[in-house]
């Protein structure tokens, strides 16, 4: 019970921690006070509890594939929010944004963190709820939860300070790259969920690296959390992964174009930060 609680909690915590760290770095670069993260975490916890308590019923939807569809939906919404977020980030790194745009920017951050927590937290809540019914498992599970969460949060903290420690020009670039990876990862997972639900057709396997780097190993879990590593991804997943990353790149370009366009319209100097 110990080891699987470590793996389970670690995986879910790390994914959320990476997102939070990167978004906190962006907030900091833009001088946004970190109060939003409290709202995001609170909303995420509430969402996770609701999701966990209704998981059994949600699973029965759409002919017993409701869980996959909901997960895919959440993942796609996260990608959408990240896309809008990056466009605005790209815009505000060049020109001053309006109050309205700043509000959308913060809303996107809150939405991304709380949605990611809803999906990942619900799994943890279900697991802990299951364990609490069996007294003999409580101690190893709680110990494992502590270790898994400790490793995940530590990785997030070091990532946060690592990004902040980068030269100011590189921090946003690295942050955006990480978000692009997360977006690709979520896109690939969403496709996997929909394939599992048989809403999308099966496609051939792209490669099989399960012999060299099994998904179940520690390195496999780490690579999964950062890059969405899978030993046997399907072709559709690969396409989705690239598309998810391209979305982020494209939206950064959209933000850049909007900034250039805006600068041309406005007298120089007034808009420049």
């Amino acid at each position: 019970m110990f080891l699987n609680s470590v793996i389970l909690i670690f995986q879910e915590t790390l994914e959320a921690a990476i997102l939070m760290s990167v978004l906190l770095v962006f907030a900091r670069i833009n001088g946004i006070r970190p109060t939003w993260i409290i709202f995001a975490i609170a909303a995420g916890l509430v969402g996770a509890l609701i999701f966990a308590f209704n998981m059994a019923d949600i699973s029965d939807w759409f002919d017993y594939v409701g869980q996959e569809v909901m997960n895919a939906l959440i993942q796609l919404i996260i990608i959408l929010c990240l896309t809008v977020f990056i466009a605005l980030q790209s815009l505000r790194s060049r020109v001053t944004v309006s109050r309205h745009q700043n509000l959308i920017y913060i809303t996107c951050m809150v939405a991304v963190v709380s949605l990611a927590m809803t999906r990942e937290g619900s799994e943890i809540f279900i697991y802990i709820g299951m364990v609490l019914q069996q007294p003999e498992y409580i101690r190893p599970t709680l110990t494992g939860t502590g270790i898994g969460a400790g490793i995940g949060i530590s990785c997030g903290t070091l990532l946060y300070y690592g990004l902040l420690g980068l030269p100011p020009r590189w921090a946003p670039v690295c942050g955006a790259t990480l978000l692009a990876l997360v977006s690709g990862n979520f896109a690939s997972q969403a496709i996997l969920n929909l394939t599992q639900a048989d809403w999308l057709p099966y496609t051939k396997i792209l490669w099989d690296s399960s012999v060299w780097l099994p998904e179940g190993s520690l390195q496999g879990h780490l690579l999964f959390a950062f890059f969405g590593y899978e030993a046997t991804p399907s072709i559709l997943q690969g396409i989705a992964y690239i598309a998810g990353m391209l979305f982020i790149g494209l939206s950064a370009y959209v933000g850049y174009r909007a900034a250039v366009h805006g600068k041309k319209l406005q007298p120089r100097g007034e808009l420049v930060k």
Binding site: A56, Y64, V65, Q67, M130, D198, Y202
Partner: peptide, 29 residues
């Protein structure tokens, strides 16, 4: 009565199944 999570690295499948419930997972080809 307890929930379980069906998981397979080989099949790339993962799904929570609540206690005393059913779940459908498509596998293959």
């Amino acid at each position: 009565s307890t929930s379980e999570e069906f998981e397979s690295y080989d099949l790339n499948r993962e799904k929570v199944i609540a206690g005393n419930r059913k779940a459908v997972i498509f596998v293959g080809p």
